[in-house]
Amino acid sequence: MEKNAIVEKTLIIIRQVLKNEKIEWNGELTAEEINGWDSLSHMIIITELENEFKIKFKLKELNKLDNLDSLITLIQSKV
């Protein structure tokens, strides 16, 4: 799957979970920098991404994600 398609689907999920349609894509953003992205929404976003892309993240992989770009790269490596 192309990176742009992954970004688009990921952004839709983030907007849905955080209930904020105004969030714009910036690959350098960390979870902490996105308004509303707290512990619980983090878990829902990760679960929704696993469902959407039919993938399973490993704990070690999740603990290396430091921004949205690294999340996209990880998804890309799995789909």
Binding site: S39, H42, N63, K64
Partner: peptide, 16 residues
């Protein structure tokens, strides 16, 4: 040890 906050590490554990 990393750029990841303890909150995110804990959250990832709970998710897992």
């Amino acid at each position: 040890d990393s750029n990841i906050s303890s909150r995110t590490i804990k959250t990832n554990l709970i998710h897992f």
